[in-house]
Every structure is written in structure tokens, then in C-alpha cells.
Nucleic acid binder design. Structure first.
Lengths: 366, 366
DNA sequence: TTGAAAGCGCTAACAT
DNA sequence: ATGTTAGCGCTTTCAA
């Protein structure tokens, strides 16, 4: 193995530049308070020696790591079917990179991993955490709170006092004000979708819900119910089936729905993948989409929606932006954020929760 | 912000247990050479104080980080469409976790990021690197070599002397023996796929190749050609189109092929996503699959292949296992690997390159 | 503005 | 088997 030979230290650079370690340190960390000719000599030496600071030594004294953990707690299935996480990661990565922070990925596979992750976070190896895919019974939030690590959640956490999402225009809901999260306007997006179906003249609108132990699924269901009761005075429970955000689940749910209500004329699926499954079953049942049954999805995973047959009308959320914002929020919470980025007078602090808007993307299915 | 108060140090534990720091250190790191009653007292103290070792301090002296970088160099498109990376990451994560190593994710977006990543790796922040998705002109390998970090590649790197993959049964090809990588038997898998089509009686077998700046695409093309020349004495170049591993690319390629050779009776696509696009165009053109045109994909991304219409016959590779093996190989290269895992006498070293077998999964499309 | 010196928390020789 | 001690490479008072 090519073993890295011992890297040059501050000491070495100092010697070469003929200054003290302290001076080199100053130059390396922004160079305030070092006169130009000297600073230049130091930079020279750094360059020539190929000096790179030893992060461990630095962390030891600063107690900062410039690293953030990303915790993904999705047990199996969905992570693979769904480009969702790849997208979020991309957004997060961009933002972290821009601020010279590293991304430590923590994937949770099973029960034992919760403890492992909690220990890691509590161990002070990272400056903060970005946590995804919380399920209602998830032990993680509490463990994290105990760990005392600054944290931002992806998606509204479910343990808050209320089960209601924010209104269409965004703004934090009535949660524990300390909890920071980024989410899209699930409820509002769902309303838009269902309203669209209603505007198309559909009245027997079914909903294939996501896994209801996740707030996104709950909020979308609520949005669906909002419009249905608004329009019809009630929401027929037979038109709702809980599923799991996967194509296979979508198929099963669609069969169930057709069984119960063969005369349904529209379906709002909790996400695009579910819609895909529904589409297949509808086709197999001899129904035409959208003529007989109109279908709307959620997410707008472009490769999925555009390749669907027919191309899927759906509610778009900007997933990458959500990731970026999560990272942004977290970085803001970290000590030293302000100084490090040359933030001017108007240092605008993000609110405790950010709800991104959604938009309806019309394609052929509805 | 809930700010973590200063954690207990070794010193504190030592004081509480009434022993020296060295003794505590020994117990914490495996506890060899500490008599039981004492060791127990130390464990008590650790427990009571909730002591967690400071990784920075430890790294500073051991020069190890118990962290591995995963570098994904896919510019855009594919990462999102394809659950491929999620799967590999899962495999890697499992193996690293099992050996108490952390996963630092480095996503490469553009040209500037190469330098950033190289600097990071050279900076000695991680013990090793797992690198994916190399393209032929990629500057990364060289930068990494210079960085002197132990590295394992995902997929055969393209800069070696030969352009040929290993034989069907696996084994390293004639590369620089120092380069370590894990790949599936792309060429053999392609052969199996095309042979299957030929066995079905097809003779006008087309191939939609992947991006030919990646060895996986080249190897699959080679496998295709192997069989075609074997069966027909030649491989008609008009039956091959280069594409990009995406559904959209698959569509375009399929149209092109139908244009050139309307009488083709089979298609071997470089991956499942490409096959998906091809399927759509074939259907749109009024051709039945598999009656008129048989289609075979590559990868076996189950959510894709099973949901395809008709379900896709494909070549399966065990992606998660590839990830696991990559991590395994890297860990092996790291100093101290042997001692840390209680490896017995027969410490079997993985070969420099591992080629995993593929299997044909028959579904409805061929 | 620059330098000297004191640690940060830990491991690993070396003593005992 | 256990304790003592000397750093690992860096930042950060404090003096000059």
C-alpha cells in the first residue's frame, strides 16, 4: 500500500517561512492581523511544502469538526425505489461543500442502529445532524435531543403537539418552537391536486395514502379530505386506502379501491411511485387514463413521471432545495456561522421551520 | 441551542476509578493487560460518567480516523434516475458499520470539485477511499494516486493497459496489479443476455450501449459483440447505438435503431432504465414485446424490472454485495485491520480485483 | 503585529 | 499489571 509519508506540520511551515507557528496559524485561518509581506512568505511556504492542516489537531482545540451527520432512518424498501434521498443528499452536499463542511452519512438499518447512531452523535464527532424519514414511533428524536447536537429534520417530525400541517402559504405550524425542520407544503399540495381533479369534473376521487406513520402521508391525506369535504360535504372513507409509497403497494391499494368502488373516476396517489402502481392496475382493469380515471401523483420525480404511461400529472416539490435549506439552517445554528461567512449587517435568520411551496405539473394523466 | 457541555475526559474517569489515565485507556481500547477487578471499576466509572472517547484526540496520536470516504463522481442525471448508488451505499455502510468506521460522502458536481476532493483525500482526513463512476478522462485516479490514500474502485477503472474485461468466471484482468476494484462480470453477463436472445431464435439482435466512457458500457458492448460474431460471424455495426444509461436516452436510441433496422427482432439494453425507454418506443411503434421484439436489460433493479410492461428479463448483479466487498477490501488494506478483527490463522486476503458473477433473470420481455 | 507558551484529550513508550 | 511521561499538531491567550 502506498503509505502516506508524514505530512508537513505548522512547525515545518513556520521554519521555512522564518516565522512562528502562531503566525502561520493566523495566515492559514484567514490571515487577519498579519502584515502583508510576512503573510505572503507564509503562503509561499505553505504552497511549497504542500501543507494541509491536520484536522484532528485543530478539532482537538477548537472543538469544532466542520462535519455534519446525515441520518437516514428508512428501513429498506423506499430508499432504493425512490431517487428522493439521492436528490436531498445532492442539495445537502452542495450547501455543506460551499461552507467547507463534510458530510458523514449514517444509514439506519435496524433497531440496533439507533443506539449506534445516538452514541455517535452524542460522541461529539460532528457539529450537527440532519435527520430524515422519521416515523411516528421512532426513538431517534429523543435520543438526539439527549445527545444535545444541533439538529434539523427533513420533513415535519411527528411527535409535536399537533397533527396539522401549516397552511398553503407556509409558515411554521404550532410546534415546539425549538424544533427545526424543512418540509414541503404537503397538505396544500394535496389540496391543489384534488382540487384539480374536482375541477376536471371528477367526484368519485379516491386517495391512496402513504404510510401513515409518516407526517407527509398524514398531511397529504388531510389535504385530500379538506377538499373532499369542502366539495361534497364529506369524505367517503371507502375511497381511502393506506399504502406504503411503493409501486407494489400502489398496485395492491388500487385493486382494493376498484373492488370497493368500481365507479371511481379519479385517484390521488400519495407519491409518484404509488401512482405508477395504480396506473398499471387501472390499465390492466381495462380503464383508460385519464378518460375513465384521472390520476395525480406527488413529488414529480421526473424520470418516473415522464416515463409513466401516460405521463403523470403530479405535485412538484423541490427536493434538492429542501436538502439545501436543511443544511443552511443547520449551519446557521452552528457557532461561528456568522463570522466564517462574511455575513453583512442584514444577517437574516431562517425561521425555525421552513415549508416550501408545491406546484401542480400537468401532464397527460389528469 | 442546546449546547453540549464539556464531556468527561479520560482524566475524569481515571480519577473516579482511582487509577491512571493509561489504565482507563487500556480498558476502553479492549482491556488487555488489566486485571479484572480494576477493569470492572473502570467500566463502572465510564458508565457513570457517560464517557465517550474524544475521537480528535485519539486520531491525533494514532493517525487513524476510522473513517472512509466514498466518492461519487457522477455528474448529474444518472444518480437520480438510478437506485444503483443507494444500493451500493447500503452495502458499504453495512460493512463499515460492522467495523466501526464512518462513511464520509463526497459528491462530485463539477470540475472544481475534483480538486476539492483530491485536497480532502490528501489531507489525511480519512483512512481510505471508495471511488465510483470513473469516466475514461477522469482526473481523479491520478489525483488520488498522488494523495497516497488506500483506495478501492467501484467498477473496473478505465486507465489500465487493456480494454478487455475478465472472462465469464471472474478473476482479475491484466491490469496494474496494485489497483483494487470490485466489478460485476459485465462482459460475461452481456454474453449470457445475448446468448439467451439467440437461443430464442432471434438473429437481428440490437444493442443499446451505455456511455462508452465507462468501462461497464464498453464491457457489455464487448460481450454483445462476442456472441454476435460467434453466431453470425460478424456484428452488424448498424445494430449498435451508444446511449447514456437513462430512460430518455433509451428512447432516442431505440428510435434510431428502428429507423436503421425496422426488422430487428431483439434488443439488449445496457441497463434496465435504458430498456424501459426502449420498451416505450417499441410499444409506441406498434411492436409487441416479446413477440415481435424481445428485450433484455441489465442490473435487475427490481422496482424497475418488475413494474415494467412487460416485466423485464434482465441480467442481475448483486449491487449491495459489490458495495460490501469494496468496503471489505479497503478495510483489509488499512493498517491494523488484522488485529482489530479477531482474525484467526486463515486470514484470507481478497484478490486485488473481485469480479462478481451475474445471473439471467427471466421475466416476460424475452 | 509577532512570538512564546500553555494546553486540547489521548496513546504508547518506558518505568516500576 | 499498572503508573509516569512525553508528545501528536494545532489554536489561543498573553507578553513583548
Amino acid at each position: 500500500m502506498t503509505e502516506a509519508v508524514s505530512r508537513p506540520t505548522l512547525e515545518a511551515v513556520a521554519a521555512r517561512a522564518g516565522v512562528s507557528r502562531a503566525t502561520v496559524s493566523r495566515v492559514v485561518n484567514g490571515g487577519d492581523g498579519v502584515r502583508e509581506p510576512l503573510a505572503e512568505r507564509v503562503r509561499q511556504a505553505v504552497e511549497e511544502l504542500g501543507y494541509v492542516p491536520n484536522q484532528a489537531a485543530r478539532s482537538l482545540v477548537t472543538r469544532r469538526h466542520d462535519a455534519v451527520a446525515v441520518v437516514i432512518a428508512e428501513p429498506e424498501a423506499r430508499v432504493f425505489a425512490d431517487p428522493f434521498f439521492a436528490r436531498q443528499l445532492r442539495g445537502i452536499s452542495k450547501e455543506l461543500t460551499a461552507h467547507d463542511n463534510q458530510l458523514v452519512l449514517l444509514l439506519i438499518e435496524g433497531r440496533a442502529d439507533h443506539a449506534r447512531v445516538a452514541r455517535y452523535l452524542a460522541g461529539g464527532h460532528v457539529d450537527g445532524a440532519l435527520v430524515f424519514s422519521l416515523h411516528l414511533d421512532d426513538p431517534l428524536p429523543e435520543l438526539i435531543r439527549d445527545a444535545g447536537v444541533p439538529t434539523v429534520f427533513g420533513g415535519r417530525p411527528g411527535w409535536g403537539p399537533d397533527g396539522a400541517a401549516a397552511g398553503p402559504a407556509g409558515g411554521a405550524s404550532g410546534e415546539d418552537p425549538g424544533v427545526r425542520y424543512v418540509d414541503c407544503d404537503n397538505r396544500g399540495g394535496a389540496r391543489t391536486a384534488v382540487r384539480h381533479l374536482v375541477d376536471l369534473g371528477r367526484r368519485r376521487v379516491a386517495h391512496i395514502a402513504g404510510a401513515l406513520d409518516q407526517t407527509s402521508a398524514v398531511d397529504r391525506l388531510d389535504g385530500y379530505r379538506d377538499v373532499m369535504t369542502d366539495v361534497l360535504g364529506e369524505s367517503d372513507p371507502r375511497l381511502v386506502v393506506e399504502s406504503d409509497f411503493t409501486p407494489g403497494g400502489g398496485e395492491r391499494a388500487m385493486r382494493e379501491l376498484l373492488d370497493r368502488c368500481p365507479d371511481l373516476d379519479a385517484v390521488f396517489a400519495a407519491n409518484d411511485l404509488t401512482a405508477l402502481g395504480a396506473l398499471r392496475v387501472l390499465r390492466a382493469s381495462g380503464r383508460r387514463v385519464p378518460e375513465d380515471v384521472a390520476v395525480v401523483g406527488f413529488d414529480d420525480m421526473v424520470p418516473v413521471t415522464e416515463q409513466a404511461d401516460p405521463p403523470l400529472t403530479t405535485v412538484r416539490q423541490d427536493i434538492e432545495e429542501m436538502g439545501r435549506l436543511m443544511a443552511c439552517m443547520l449551519l446557521e445554528d452552528l457557532p461561528g456561522a456568522r463570522e466564517r461567512d462574511g455575513a453583512p449587517a442584514a444577517w437574516s435568520t431562517l425561521p425555525s421551520a421552513v415549508i416550501l411551496p408545491t406546484t401542480l405539473v400537468r401532464r397527460a394523466s389528469a
